[in-house]
Every structure is written in C-alpha cells, then in structure tokens.
Design a protein around this nucleic acid. Structure first.
Length: 783
DNA sequence: GCGCGACTAGGCGGG
DNA sequence: CTAGTCGCGC
C-alpha cells in the first residue's frame, strides 16, 4: 500500500533528497519558487529524480505544483525547455500553465517546452516525422483528422462495404465499440479472435474495414493520434530512442483520466530517464466511458515500485462546509484510496439545497439568486457558474437568464466546429488539402449547391471507378472535368455528368487558388464558387445564424495570417480538429455567468456554483441505475462527477433539483439524488418550495417544517430510496391519517404544488393538495 | 434526384 | 425534443 509514513514526513525529505545545485548556488530563484508552498507541495516540486505520483485532491494546488516544478527544473536545474514534456487534459490547461510558468520566470517565454494534450502531442509526433510515417505507416503528411461525425460516416461506409445494412447496426454504437478497442490497443485481428458473440464478430469485421477505409482516405481518428505514434515507435525504434533520450522530464496532469494507449505512450517515453511525474485524483476520474482506466493511477506503484507518492489533501479553494460535504459524498465510494480532504478555511455559508417543481422553476430560482447576489454586491456575474449533467439542461437556464437580462456564456452544447455550415466549409478545406478524404468529398457533394444533381448512384459510380483505377474519388471528378488526364473516365450521363464537371472544375480552381491566396481569400472563393453563399437566404433567421457563424470563422482565418493557404491550412485544420469546448472558456472578467457541463468543469473553480438537476435519473444518470445493467462502477463514476461539481465551488454552493421534469417532450416525476443523502444536515440549508428563506434557516438549521416532505431527514436515511410527499406517482399506495389506505390515481401540477387524486379503500376518490395532505407512502406490505 | 411531411428511436459525457 | 430516415409526389 501507500508509503505514506515516509513520503508525508517533511523531516525525512531533507535526508532523502540528494544534494542539488540548490545547495551550492543558493539561488534566489529557487527560494522564490519554493516560498508559499506547503510541505507536500514543496516535496513534489523538489522530487526531481525518478517516478513520482502526486495524488492531489480538488483545490489542493496541483497546478501550482506543476508550474513551480517546471519553473524549478528550468531556472534552478537548468533543464533546457525542449527536454520537458508536459501533457494536460485540455489546450486551455496547457495555455494557462504556460502563462503561469512564464510569470514565475519573470515573463521569460517558455521556449521549447512541449506542452499540450495527448492528442496534440500525438499529432505532433506524426508531423515531425513525415518520412518515416509515410514509409512505415503509410500515412501521408496531409492526413485529415476525423471527428466523431466523420467516424460515424466511415463506419456506415464500412458496414455497406462488408455487405451489412447501416440501419440495422447502429453506426454510433459501433463507432464507440471500435474506439474502445483502439484505445485499448486491440487491433482488428485480435478483436476478431476475442469475439465471443455474433455481435462482437460483426464489430470486429466492421472495425477491420473501418481501418482500411481510414487508411485509404489518409485519415486518422482521435484514437489514431495516440495509437499511430505507438505504431511508429514499434516500426522505428530509433525514433523512440531519440524521444526517450530527449525527454528528461515528463509530467502528466489529470492522470486519473488517461486510458491504456496514453499509458503505454507515456511509459514508453519515460523508460530511459524514468522522471515521470504524474498528478491526478482517482476521486475525480470521470471519463471511464472514454476508456479512461482508473487503474493507471491506482496501480502506479505496481508499475513503478520505486515511485514516490505524495498526497496533497489540504484544500485551499472551498469553505470548510463545502469541503466536508464533498468529502462525505465521495467517501461512500468503494473503489478508492481511503483518504480525507481537509481545509483550514472558514466554515462559510451552508450549502443551499432547493427543491423546485420543474426545470423552469429551477432555472428561475438560479437566475433570481444570481441576480440577487449581484444586486447586493456580493458577487459579479463572472463569479457564478451553473453546472449540469446533460447539455440539454442548459436551455431552461439560458432562457431564465435571458429573460432577466443576465449575460452568460455556454460551454459545450453544439460545438462550434460541429455546426453544419462550419463542417461543410471545413470539409471543402480538408478536401483541398487531402484529396483522399472521402468523407469530406461526400460532404461537399452532398451538402453544397455545386453537388446538386449528384446522388448516391453517381457517387457509387465514381467510387467504383476510383477503386478500379486505384485513384481517389476526387480524381474521378477532376478527370470528368478535364482538369487532369486519365485513360479511363468515370461514366456519367446527362445532369450528373455536368454536375460532376462543375464539382471537378471548382475544386481544381480552388486548389490552384490555395497556392498563392491566404485562407481568407480562399474562404471567399469557396463561399462564392460552391454556391454556398448564394444559397443562404438572408431573411431566414436560421440562415442568418449560419452566415454569422461563417463570418466568425472567417475572422478566425484572418488571424492565421497572409501566407498562402497552402502553407497555413494544415496547422489550421489540425488546431480546429483538436480544440475542446472548454478551450473557448473565458474567465477574464467579461461580466458573464458560465453555463457548463460537470465534465467540462473539471479543473475549474468559481466563487459561486449551482449544480442543477441533482436528481435520480440525471445525477446519477438513468443509464447507470437501470436495473437491467446496474453497474456499480458507473454509479461510482456518477458520484465522482457530483463530487467534481461540488468541489468547483469556493464560497457558495447551491444544489437544486426539480420534482418533475420534461425530458424529450415527456413529462416525468423525479426523486432527489441518492447522493444528497451523504450530506449531513448541519451543512445544509434546505429551502422550501416557496422561495423565501424561512425563519430558522438563516441560522443554518434545516427547515424542519419541510423535513418530512421535501427531503429525507437524517433519521430516514438508511440507503433505501427516500420517498417524499412531493414525489407522488400514480399507482403508489398511500396512507392518510383520516381516510386510511388508498392508491394514487392521478397527479395534476398546480403552481408550486401538486393536486393528488387518491382512491381510498374506505372513503372513495378524493383530491388533495400534496403540501397539505400529510400522507405517507407505503409499500405493498403495508408499512 | 429533390424536397417535403410523417414517423421513430435515442435518451450522457468529449479530445 | 430532435436528428435521422422513410415514403411520397414531382
């Protein structure tokens, strides 16, 4: 187990540490880099020899440790920047770290340090070695990066190609299964050998074809950005040795969310110098669905028996109440290292727990609270963030904020680069850059006006021609247009022939243009010549939106510069492919409330946090609780997600849930999340439905008047689901003190209340108000 | 081959 | 609810 006895002991640290240049030069820089750090943080910064695992609780200063450590390596130990590799979870985290380190270095730029996401690093490795990548892996330097949608298209093509009906095999599910296999480094043939069911056999077959199609399109999916570097190193060990030698220090942030491939990549690179420094928190592992393997962090010591383990448990971020509540919540998980999150901070305000009748009341409550605290001068809009489990929840909240004129920014949702018009445009760029990119070609032909008249049949003809000629589909179009010469020409007639000519000549013209025109000029030509600009109706709101998005993209292209598109397009497309939602998050005071998913919120902090929809079915999400596939590990991940949300809050934490919620047009009743049961009463202020604080609540006491209905009391806890008066559902057996036993037949929503129709055994049908009728829900045994 | 309305199935998270 | 598909008339 943990070697905490030695690693925690600061006194031993000095004994264990080898003499470093620190001793001899008594560097002022060193002193400065170490002041303000606590013992554990300092230990983490100074432990520069050998593998180190830092288990860092939320708000415990892990970014501080990472930045100070890198600055220390460079300033004090004079490690050249280009010998340091730092992997972060998002581009934004990398940018932030860069800025903070530069600040620590008195503004000197961070030259050479390789800092970015795993995927960006993978792409970089492939781009840095174009010759070997082409020769050994058959991937040409202008490769496209396929996103989720492109992958699904490729899966559909693969299904067709192996003679299966894409409608019967759920391309999205297959995509996920293939991705899961790839991120566990299982190649198609092995997947086939492992296949135990017909379903798995199908997956393996489609997987093999999918891979073939990707290679033919000279395209890489996200998983390839990690697996192909590994293939590269296997095919060319001298390259691996070169990188192993180069990276004297490797640092990995959010290690709990790495998957198998990432683990293999990092382990391989760290093999030579073994200065692998990983930081993570198993309790914040929330990407299991993306094959993140929590074992990477839990088994670190097994992989590196000489690893030093350092625990950062002191939280500097949140009030004591928030820290304690979060700690109580997470302690219920079984699969975890037993430890305790602590803080020296003040108690702060109680956590506000609030039940609302539906999602729009929930949204209004949140918006009103935000407005109130801003009006009182307690906060500015930037201080507040609203977090939720699903992106769909943002809509109601946006509406309520908009109605009150409160500015906000939404992170996530439909990502900018995944909007149709943006994807159409980018597909054109991609096609110009990588002529083999079939998904891009089909998108251009299928969605842009120049493709009118070309349907599945014409495309199939060209596809067959390309296969026979060992050429690209684009070559087919170019041949028909006479832009290039081939002995054989795809046979199309009439309207489709002229349409194909049009496509071929437009693409040929744009390709030529890209040679000497900057991206902005190319943008204008694309919009013009593909007919896209003209097809937008500038009076339709939706089309205006599209046009506005395209113009936003154009202004982004302006920032790329005036060099010919040919020279800038690759880097631009790569950047676009690898941005994350949170990368766009602006935390400098822009006067806006932030709306964000719990997943995206990892690593962030806000003075005021609202976690909305703390309900069964949403948090934990229903898939994790449905009895057919009750997955304890998924449930624990949901709990971690809630923990992540709670620990984003510095001063004020609100937890809200709605007793009824319309999901996908259907109306349903909900029960407060089981996770709430872990939070002790004394940390909470439970508000009644009618909004205003009740007497007594101000003293931080639970509102006893509600304790029998709105929310479980301490006494009622025992792990069993809590049924309350506000969560009646038809068919429920109830007991009324006067009317006796009955069955709920109907629920009618009233303002802030419910009207419950009950069929009583002795007294017949009655209609009662939920808030007034002191009924108990009983199970079938009559308890 | 296109464009329209009707229908249904999924239903979460994201580099 | 909403994206994707189906079936129809043009």
């Amino acid at each position: 187990m943990l070697n905490s006895g030695t690693t925690h002991n600061a006194g031993r640290l000095t004994l264990r540490s080898r003499p470093t240049p620190l001793d001899s030069i008594a560097s002022a820089a060193a002193t400065e880099l170490l002041t303000g750090l606590n013992d554990a943080q300092r230990e983490a910064v100074l432990a520069v020899d050998g593998p180190v695992l830092v288990v860092a609780g939320p708000g415990s200063g892990k970014t501080r440790v990472l930045t100070h450590r890198i600055a220390y390596l460079m300033e004090v130990l004079h490690v050249p920047g280009d010998r340091i590799l730092a992997v972060t979870f998002t581009n934004k985290a990398a940018r932030e770290m860069r800025t903070r380190i530069e600040k620590l270095r008195q503004g000197r730029p961070l030259d050479g340090v390789v800092m970015g996401t795993f995927h960006a690093f993978g792409a970089r490795l492939l781009r840095e070695n174009p010759g070997v990548v082409a020769d050994r892996l058959g991937i040409l330097p202008q490769f496209s990066i396929y996103d989720d949608g492109d992958q699904v298209e490729t899966v559909k093509a693969a299904l067709k190609s192996v003679g299966l009906d894409p409608k019967l095999y759920q391309p999205r599910r297959l995509r996920a299964r293939i991705s899961a296999a790839k991120s566990q480094l299982i190649p198609p043939d092995e997947a086939r050998n492992l296949a135990a069911t017909y379903d798995e056999e199908v997956i393996a077959r489609v997987y093999a074809e999918y891979e073939r199609l990707l290679r033919r399109a000279n395209a890489l999916d996200f998983d390839d950005l990690l697996t192909q570097p590994i293939n590269l190193f296997e095919a060319a060990p001298f390259l691996l040795e070169r990188y192993q030698e180069r990276f004297l220090h490797i640092l990995v942030d959010e290690y709990q969310d790495t998957n198998r491939v990432q683990y293999v990549l990092v382990s391989a690179l760290a093999e030579r110098h073994r200065n692998l420094f990983v930081v993570g928190d198993p309790d914040q592992s929330i990407y299991g669905w993306r094959q993140a393997d929590i074992r990477n962090i839990l088994d670190f010591e097994k992989d590196y028996p000489d690893a030093r383990q350092i625990h950062l448990e002191l939280n500097y971020r949140s009030t004591a109440r928030i820290v304690e509540a979060a700690d109580r919540v997470i302690r219920e998980n079984v699969a975890r290292i037993d430890r305790r999150l602590r803080t020296d901070n003040d108690d702060g305000e109680p956590i506000v727990l609030r039940e609302l009748s539906d999602q729009s009341h929930e949204a209004q409550f949140i918006a009103d609270e935000v407005r109130r605290m801003v009006e009182l001068g307690d906060a500015i809009y930037d201080d507040a963030a609203v977090m939720y489990r699903t992106t769909a929840q943002s809509r109601a909240i946006e509406e309520a904020l908009r109605f009150r004129g409160i500015p906000y920014q939404v992170i996530g949702g439909v990502r900018f680069y995944e909007r149709k018009e943006i994807k159409d445009f980018l597909a054109t760029l991609r096609l110009l850059h990588n002529p083999s990119d079939t998904v891009a070609l089909e998108r251009v032909v299928g969605n842009l006006p120049i493709g009118r008249g070309l349907g599945p049949r014409a495309l199939e003809t060209i596809r067959a021609w390309a296969a026979a000629e060992r050429a690209t589909m684009l070559d087919g179009f170019l041949t028909i247009a006479g832009a290039i010469h081939n002995d054989s020409v795809p046979v199309l007639a009439g309207a489709s022939k002229s349409a194909a000519q049009r496509v071929g000549s437009v693409i040929a013209g744009l390709r030529e243009l890209a040679e000497d025109t900057p991206l902005t000029g190319l943008f204008d030509a694309i919009v013009e010549r593909t007919g896209y600009g003209a097809s937008l109706d500038r009076t339709e709101e939706e089309d205006l939106d599209r046009w506005a998005n395209l113009l936003e993209l154009r202004s982004e292209l302006e920032r790329v510069g005036d060099a010919p598109a040919r020279d800038t397009i690759a880097a631009y497309l790569e950047r676009v492919a690898l941005v994350a939602d949170v990368d766009s998050l602006e935390l400098d005071e822009r006067g806006r409330v932030t709306l964000i998913t719990l997943h995206s919120a990892k690593g962030l902090e806000f003075p005021v946090v609202f976690v909305a929809g703390v309900e069964e079915g949403l948090l934990p999400i229903s898939r994790a609780v449905e009895s057919e596939h009750l997955r304890p590990e998924e449930l624990e991940e949901e709990r971690r997600l809630f923990y992540v949300g709670m620990t984003r809050a510095e001063r004020l934490l609100y937890l809200t849930y709605a007793s009824s919620r319309a999901t996908y047009g259907r109306f349903g009743y909900s029960v407060p999340s089981r996770f709430l049961q872990s939070i002790p009463d004394h940390l909470l202020r439970t508000l009644g439905r009618r909004g205003a604080l009740r007497p007594g609540a101000a003293m931080g006491l639970r509102d006893k008047a509600r304790s029998d209905s709105a929310y479980p009391t301490a006494a009622s806890r025992g792990g069993t689901p809590v049924v309350t008066a506000t969560t009646y559902i038809p068919g429920q057996k109830v007991f009324h003190p006067k009317f006796g036993e009955g069955t709920v037949t109907e629920i009618t929503e009233r303002r802030d209340d419910q009207e419950v129709a009950v069929d009583f055994v002795r007294h017949g049908a009655k209609r009662l108000l939920a808030s007034l009728a002191a009924m108990d829900v009983i199970d079938h045994d009559g308890h």
